[in-house]
Write a protein that binds this DNA or RNA. Structure first.
Lengths: 126, 126
DNA sequence: ACCTTATTGAGAAGTCTTTTCAATAACGCT
DNA sequence: AGCGTTATTGAAAAGACTTCTCAATAAGGT
């Protein structure tokens, strides 16, 4: 069965404290900086599990790195993220969902999922 | 100045022969299989250059791997791709462009770029 | 043909992520 | 509380993708 450990709690705490999306490495670094001795592998494992359980949201940066964030809204949604500071706005996009479905149907694609994210500079970083 | 080499030509040929998006590694493997002795590094270099010149289109797979394809349509567009065989349909999506711009503007984000791709199973692979 | 220099090949190196495995600690039960 | 089971951890190794280094090669202009 699944167990609640100190390490996982720390990851949750650290992730909650982060403003926006952060990489596993960055999260580990900040935790280490705060005195924790958690291992990088454990951070990865915790994040992966949490994503699977829907408690954490993840996306691929433009460089192909996985970024994580504590979910604020449940369910499917998209992101508008500052590529400088990681600040993120969650946006839900009904038109996109419908458009995606329609496109897939038009070409007889099934079992579809989509990636829709916007990256830019927020007003503070611009 | 830029030089036209046999290796780059081979990459173009191989990429054109591929049905849809392929990874640099897969492309190199197929070229090797066909008797070429081109190095992996050169394949990466050629692909990177071609993307920069707009002759080749690239996208990040859901696993964070870069995939490449010879461009058929110029300019900005999106993809509907079969995650099994790589077959790809290029779709242009004016509504998405406008939506993206509008969202960015609404939150005072500038210098925006977006990632919009749909992955699924094509009719043949379903 | 020759010279200059962009390009190549091979391997090393870099990053991100996952896996291995022995040691540890969480949870259920008594 | 104490105990046994077994999920979880830490540390290092391994794996995957991509870039870099550098000497050798070859493209293109003269």
């Amino acid at each position: 069965m699944k167990r609640q450990t100190k390490q996982r709690d720390l990851v949750v705490t650290a992730l909650t404290k982060a403003r926006g999306f952060v990489s596993a490495q960055a999260l580990h670094a900040s935790m280490t900086h705060s005195g924790s001795t958690i291992s990088l592998a454990t951070v990865y494992r915790a994040l992966t599990d949490m994503v699977g359980e829907g408690d954490v949201d993840s996306l691929l940066s433009l460089e192909g790195e996985n970024l994580y964030r504590a979910c604020s809204s449940n369910g499917h949604h998209h992101h508008l993220m500052c590529r400088e500071c990681g600040a993120t706005v969650e946006i839900d996009a009904k038109p996109i969902e419908e458009w995606s479905r329609a496109q897939a149907a038009a070409y007889n694609f099934t079992d579809v999922e989509h990636v829709v994210d916007i990256f830019g500079l927020c007003s503070q970083c611009a």
